[in-house]
Design a protein around this nucleic acid. Structure first.
Lengths: 117, 117
DNA sequence: CGATAATGATACGGCCCCGTAACGATCGGG
DNA sequence: CCCGATCGTTACGGGGCCGTATCATTATCG
């Protein structure tokens, strides 16, 4: 059951949510960080730096730095893998789950306001 | 006729489009720039620096700098208002319209792929 | 063991964006 | 005519993210 959305609706939805994000002081994530955060919270664990890097098509330092900054915000946390101590396992947090949920609410609410055409 | 979308669908849509944007080398716009671009192309002209600033809830230098960088990319252009030479009128461009259209296609295509639940 | 591979982190130089404050140009009211 | 208000821009100092190259740690294989 595919979601039917017209190009003009898609644009208005995209614009309105972006306006909300710009005005929401707490949402200060870049496009890359958003992609990383949602991948962590929507795809099945475990998540590693290397896995995310190849999944997003970016270099590993990009992931490391994004995890640093999102970690400071409390949106994710890291833990050494005990079985292969080279790996780092990225873990979800309560604050991160709340942020993702907040984004979902934002999108659904703005979609509900869309008129036809 | 409102658009019905479930939170889980909203998140998967948001994630997938962001993954596309990260991997698309040409799309290098920040959240703010995207909000500005879509406002210019979706709301009725004329657009001014001050108008956009108050519409987005940001300071004027933010708009000026965003117009500078988007102007270099050919996405928008500027012209002095002949009747009130203090004003600057922001104009749309072919490249900008194409970029907006491309984004619309991206969102609608990813929405079409969404499963239920 | 020892050499090689793999993982994530870090250093570096560069670029872009931010907010505040100031600026020049232009308009408009007294 | 002039002085204040308005417009957009620029200057400044600070901070974040980027890609490349390199690093320390750990695992693997001969």
């Amino acid at each position: 059951m595919a979601l039917e959305i017209k190009p003009s609706q898609a644009l208005r939805l995209w614009r309105q949510v972006h306006l909300d994000l710009v005005q929401d002081a707490h949402s200060d994530l870049s496009v890359r960080q958003t992609a990383i955060l949602l991948t962590i919270y929507l795809e099945l664990p475990p998540h590693t730096v290397r896995g995310l890097a190849s999944r997003l098509g970016v270099t590993k330092p990009v992931i490391t730095r994004a995890l640093d900054s999102m970690g400071k915000l409390g949106l994710v946390s890291r833990r050494r893998d005990e079985f292969d101590k080279r790996n780092v396992v990225i873990q979800r947090t309560v604050a991160g789950a709340l942020a993702v949920e907040h984004l979902a609410d934002l999108v659904t609410a703005r979609a509900r306001e869309l008129g036809p055409a």
